[in-house]
């Protein structure tokens, strides 16, 4: 910082600081998009458009599922790079839509960084869905898919109950901040345990159909499809990372329910 101030006029230093903040705001949008489950291609596309809107001469962005690297070239030949590491990924299509609308707005007419930061913060700190709604979704989705995959009415009721168990165990795990593999393993074990108890009590009939209903909520089916899509789109690294992550997740889930099923003789 000091050396910069020595060599440059205050005006140049100011624009440099400003560009720095613009770059950070653009990366905030990219980061939030990636966290909310947007495809790698969309993230790169949005960042490139935003950089154009803010008048950078050239921008090179490289995104994978866990990181974003952005280098821009400014007038006067100065080059700047910022990097983000992205840890969590939780599908939130509502957030993707809002971020998309925001970036369209910026591209139509660029806004001051302060305003942009404010709007980003508003999207970031939206209040999460009420637990009751999430639990109801889990129950309905579980019931519906156990019928979809060939279960009967009793199986559907059982799946709804174990879906709520799954939702609760996910909530507990997210409070405890355990690693994702262990989280998936324990949640699927807890769900399978609940299912087996109910099947023994005579509520459901086909444990596999019931568990598939629950598993639809945990299993990385969307991730598997998305990663293959990335590979076909020649986003090789993102695709392979996603694929490896999906396989690991599926394995963790399988270990969880299989442990319970083998112990309890399913």
């Amino acid at each position: 910082m000091e050396s910069l101030q020595q060599h440059e006029s205050p005006k140049e230093y100011e624009t440099w600081m400003d560009a720095n903040r613009v770059l950070a705001a653009i990366l905030d949008i990219g980061e939030l998009l990636l966290e909310s489950g947007a495809e790698v291609m969309r993230v790169e596309d949005t960042i490139t458009r935003l950089c154009q809107a803010y008048g950078f001469l050239r921008s090179d962005v490289f995104t994978i599922t866990s990181s974003i690297v952005l280098t821009v070239q400014m007038e006067g030949g100065r080059v700047m790079t910022q990097t983000r590491r992205v840890w969590t990924r939780q599908t939130d299509l509502g957030a993707v839509e809002k971020l998309n609308a925001l970036s369209r707005e910026v591209c139509a007419r660029r806004m001051p960084v302060e305003l942009l930061n404010e709007k980003i913060e508003m999207i970031r700190t939206r209040k999460p869905a009420p637990f009751i709604l999430t639990a109801a979704c889990y129950a309905v989705i579980s019931a519906v898919f156990s019928v979809f995959f060939g279960g009967n009415g009793y199986d559907a009721v059982t799946a709804a109950v174990s879906g709520i168990v799954l939702c609760l165990s996910l909530l507990v795990m997210s409070r405890m901040h355990v690693n994702a593999v262990i989280e998936n393993m324990l949640c699927s074990a807890a769900t399978a345990f609940a299912v087996m108890l109910m099947v023994r009590a005579g509520l459901g009939m086909h444990p596999d159909k019931i568990i598939i209903g629950n598993i639809m909520l945990l299993i990385p089916g969307i991730q598997l499809t998305t990663s293959l899509r990335d590979i076909f789109n020649e986003d090789m690294i993102a695709g392979l990372l996603g694929l490896a992550e999906a396989v690991l997740k599926a394995l963790a889930i399988a270990l969880g329910f299989a442990f319970v099923l083998i112990r309890m003789g399913g």
Binding site: L93, M216, I219, I222, A250, A254
Partner: peptide, 22 residues
């Protein structure tokens, strides 16, 4: 994405993924 991801849910091979890991 917002429309497509939920629309494709019934096609997702969740059942076969379950049997595979089983």
């Amino acid at each position: 994405l917002l429309l497509l991801v939920p629309m494709l849910i019934p096609l997702i091979p969740g059942g076969d993924l379950y049997y595979m890991m089983d």
